[in-house]
Amino acid sequence: MPAPRVDGRLGAGLLVGVALAAGVVVWLGDWRLGDDSAVYRAGALAFLHGDSLYGPERLSALPPWVSLPFIYPPAAALLFVPLAALPSGLVWGVVSAASLVSLAVVVRLCARRGTLPVAALTVCALALEPVWKTLVLGQINLILMALVVVDVLALASTRWAGVLTGVAAAVKLTPLIFVAHLFVTGRWRAGLRALGTFAGLQAVMFALTPRDSIRYWTGGGALGPNQWDGAHWIFNQSLGGLVHRATHDAPWSLIVALVIGAVIVAPAVWLVRRLHARRETLGALLVTAFVGLLVSPISWSHHWVWAVPLAVLLAVRRRWLWAGAVVALFGSCVVMLVPNGGDTEFNWGLGWSIPGNAYVLAAAFGILGLAMRECWTRRGLRARANPGAPGLSHTT
């Protein structure tokens, strides 16, 4: 008798059910989870009530224990409107449920395996620091990642290609790098759709709330200098964070970080094009994702959820050692174990600086290493194809 097959919808339903049940418990118990999801709801309510999203005053719908500002583009408030219909305490459960489904979708698209392996990989992914921290905070990193992955991997040959990437960029500016990815890989129509979706949503908000839109895009709101306060904190795992820590928040830190980023971007773009030309679509996308995390002025540790598709890709290719290294790095919570806070990061020394910048160093050296290997592999193939060519033969 054949073993019964587990319906993928059942697994997804269980994930949603568990998250929603946890959300109800959190709501009834008045637990303080979901700071960021509370901000999403408060931003939506401020938009609906005609209040300022970026004014100096605190968003009125925030719980008393949350004091975070709304730092997202105006279009994000429009897309968060469905959360306004939910009680404050229940928003965390709904966002977490959507995040878990998004995680399962990403694993499914990257693993291309049956339901049981996907379910197991999804549960294992919960042990990674960026994943569980995203869930605790009620962040939308997993949802945005799923939008991009579905767009690039599943909708590439459809007329909708690029739209979900544009939506993701309209919620947070950092996914704009995936719009550039579409152009770099020669997918011009998808790139234009992404740009059109992004610009269209912002234009809608200029019509609905011109004051907030002008304030945001002229630097008077969340794009102002206050957004970069605390850039040296260990949980900012970007090149900017690394340089701010190394230079004790010197005013020229961001410029140095941009120069270092440019050194990494050049070979990364070449690598993305090479991988895409070989139809290694996921590999090319991951290079772009990690470049984006490196060059963004702020990349909090919970933004590094792209470790999940990376580990899955390595496991599918049976690169067990590298897959284990990725899981060990992001599951070790190393950035939570290093002394931090206040000015502590300025006094690390070399010993603490390596684990304290672990995500940044791993991504930077990984991208540069892959680019060098690709260059050597290409050179070797050319040498075998034309052994007599000057500079290619081992005997010259």
Score class of each variant (00 low, 15 high):
Pro4Ile: 11
Trp228Gln: 13
Val136Ser: 08
Gly166Met: 08
His244Leu: 13
Ser99Arg: 00
Ala125Met: 12
His181Ile: 03
Thr218Ser: 15
Val179Cys: 11
Ser99Leu: 00
Ala222Cys: 07
Arg273Asp: 07
Arg384Thr: 07
Ala98Ser: 01
Tyr54Cys: 10
Gly196Ala: 14
Leu350Gly: 05
Ala284Leu: 13
Val167Glu: 10
Leu282Ala: 06
Pro69Leu: 01
Gly342Cys: 05
Ala268Tyr: 04
Gly241Asp: 11
Asp343Gly: 04
Ala383Met: 02
Gly162Phe: 10
Leu121Asn: 10
Arg379Phe: 12
His49Ala: 15
Pro64His: 12
Ala268Val: 11
Asp35Phe: 09
Asp36Trp: 06
Leu195His: 03
Gln237Phe: 08
Pro74Ser: 02
Arg41Thr: 01
Ala161Lys: 07
Val95Arg: 00
Trp252Glu: 10
Leu153Met: 15
Val101Ile: 02
Asp229Val: 12
Ala21Tyr: 00
Thr377Ser: 14
Leu176Cys: 14
Arg108Asp: 02
Ala168Tyr: 11
Arg215Pro: 01
Ala194Arg: 09
Asn226Arg: 15
Met336His: 13
Thr209Ile: 09
Arg319Cys: 11
Pro2Glu: 14
Trp92Gly: 00
Ser157Gln: 15
Ile255Leu: 13
Met336Thr: 11
Val81Gln: 02
Gly43Tyr: 06
Gly93Phe: 00
Ala222Asp: 08
Leu48Thr: 11
Ala156Thr: 13
Val149Tyr: 05
Gln237Asp: 09
Gly13Asn: 03
Ile260Trp: 04
Ala84Tyr: 02
Ser60Tyr: 08
Gly34Thr: 01
Thr344Trp: 01
Ala156Trp: 14
Leu258Thr: 12
Pro69Glu: 04
Ala246Pro: 03
Ala385Met: 09
Asn347Val: 07
Tyr216Ala: 05
Leu103Phe: 04
Asp212Pro: 09
Arg319Lys: 13
Leu192Lys: 04
Ala328Val: 06
Ala169Tyr: 09
Leu223Ala: 09
Ile177Pro: 03
Ala194His: 09
Val107Gly: 02
Ala362Thr: 10
His394Leu: 12
Asp212Ala: 12
Val123Glu: 12
Asp51Gly: 08
Ala323Tyr: 08
Leu164Glu: 07
Ala125Cys: 12
Pro355Trp: 07
Val327Cys: 07
Arg9Gly: 09
Val91His: 01
Ala146Gly: 07
Ala362Val: 10
Val360Ser: 05
Asp51Val: 03
Thr158Pro: 08
Ala38Trp: 02
Ala203Pro: 10
Gly240His: 15
Pro82His: 01
Gly17Asn: 00
Trp348Val: 02
Ala385Ser: 13
Leu310Val: 11
Val269Asn: 04
Lys133Pro: 00
Val95Tyr: 00
Gly292Asn: 10
Ala307Met: 13
Gly43Met: 06
Gly23Ser: 06
Arg274Thr: 13
Pro309Leu: 09
Ala75Lys: 01
Ala268Phe: 06
Leu337Gly: 10
Gly283Thr: 11
Met145Ala: 15
Ala125Ile: 10
Tyr72Pro: 07
Ala119Lys: 02
Thr247Asp: 09
Val334Arg: 05
Asn340Pro: 00
Val171Thr: 13
